[in-house]
C-alpha cells in the first residue's frame, strides 16, 4: 500500500499519445467499412487522480475505457501504463496487467453467476496463483471492510444491486491495483445507492490514493470526480478541474456521511 500512498505526487500513471482506434466492418454490400472511433487522443492521468470521462453514446468513451483497461488494443498511438508501453504487450501480459494493476467495475456488475460473493471476490487472486483458502481469507477481509461480511455466502442473484456493486468493487480491490476503471458503475442503481457507491469511490481515492477513472453520462455522478474529461465524436473537447466535486463533498461531509476524515 506504501507505493500507492506515495502516488499523491504527480507521477503519470496513464500516458496516452496520438491514440487512434478504428473498427473495420464488412458492409452488407461486401465492402469493408472503416469506422474510426477515436482520433489522436492525448491524455495524461497522474497517480491519485479521480477522473470522470463524459460524453454521449457514440462519443468513444467506452472504447477509450476498454483500451485503458487493456481489454482492447489501439489501432495506432501509444499507451503507457505505469511506465510500461501496453500497446506492445502480448495477450497474456495484458491479462497479467488486468489482474495486477487494474480493477474493473461495470454497469451490469458482471459477477460470476452461481458463485458466492466470497468466491467472486477471491477469483482474481486465484488467477494470480494464490491458493484457494488464502484467497478466501483475503476476500472475506475485504467484504468485511465493505460491510458485506454477512452476505459472503450469498450468490449474486440473492443480493441487491448496491450490494452486488459493492461485491464487484471488493473484487476490483483484492489485488490492490493502483487503478480502478468504472464503466457507468451507477447506471443500474437508484439515486441513494448511487450516492453510496460514489462516496465509496471517493473514499478509496482519498484514503488509499487509488486512481479512479469513471465513465458516465450523468452530470451528478461526474460531479464526484476532481477532473472532468468530455469526449465528442472521438475527440477530447474538454479537460478541466471539476469544481462541482468540492461542493458535493462539502455537502456529504455536512450530512450524515459514514465516512470519517
Amino acid at each position: 500500500m506504501a507505493s500507492i500512498q506515495a502516488a499523491h505526487t504527480a507521477n503519470p500513471l496513464i500516458q496516452i499519445e496520438d491514440l487512434c482506434k478504428s473498427y473495420s466492418l464488412q458492409g452488407a454490400d461486401g465492402k469493408t467499412i472503416t469506422n474510426q472511433v477515436l482520433f489522436s487522443i492525448n491524455l495524461t492521468i497522474n497517480q491519485g487522480e479521480f477522473v470522470a470521462i463524459m460524453g454521449h453514446s457514440g462519443s468513444g468513451k467506452s472504447t477509450l475505457m476498454n483500451i485503458l483497461g487493456c481489454l482492447d488494443t489501439p489501432t495506432s498511438g501509444s499507451y503507457w501504463l505505469a511506465g510500461k508501453n501496453v500497446a506492445a504487450l502480448s495477450g497474456d501480459e495484458l491479462a497479467h496487467i488486468r489482474n495486477q494493476s487494474i480493477g474493473f467495475v461495470f454497469q451490469g456488475f458482471n459477477l460470476l453467476k452461481r458463485m458466492t460473493a466470497l468466491d467472486n471476490v477471491a477469483t482474481p487472486l486465484l488467477y494470480a496463483g494464490i491458493g484457494r483458502s488464502q484467497s478466501r481469507k483475503r476476500a472475506l477481509e475485504l467484504l468485511r471492510r465493505t460491510g458485506l461480511e454477512s452476505f459472503a455466502m450469498h450468490q449474486p442473484n440473492q443480493l441487491s444491486g448496491g450490494q452486488q456493486q459493492r461485491v464487484a468493487i471488493s473484487r476490483a480491490l483484492i489485488n490492490e491495483p493502483p487503478l480502478i476503471l468504472a464503466d457507468e458503475p451507477t447506471g443500474n442503481l437508484d439515486t441513494q445507492t448511487s450516492r453510496e457507491i460514489m462516496l465509496l469511490f471517493e473514499q478509496l481515492n482519498r484514503d488509499q490514493g487509488i486512481t479512479i477513472v469513471l465513465v458516465t453520462h450523468e452530470d451528478d455522478i461526474a460531479a464526484y470526480a476532481k477532473r472532468l474529461i468530455r469526449l465528442k465524436d472521438g475527440h477530447i473537447i474538454l479537460d478541466q478541474h471539476n469544481k462541482a466535486s468540492e461542493t458535493i463533498l462539502d455537502q456529504a461531509a455536512a450530512g450524515n456521511s459514514p465516512m470519517t476524515q
Partner: peptide, 9 residues
C-alpha cells in the same frame, strides 16, 4: 469477466 479480472488464455 474472467479475462477482465486476469485470466490468461
Amino acid at each position: 469477466i474472467r479475462m477482465a479480472i486476469g485470466a490468461n488464455r
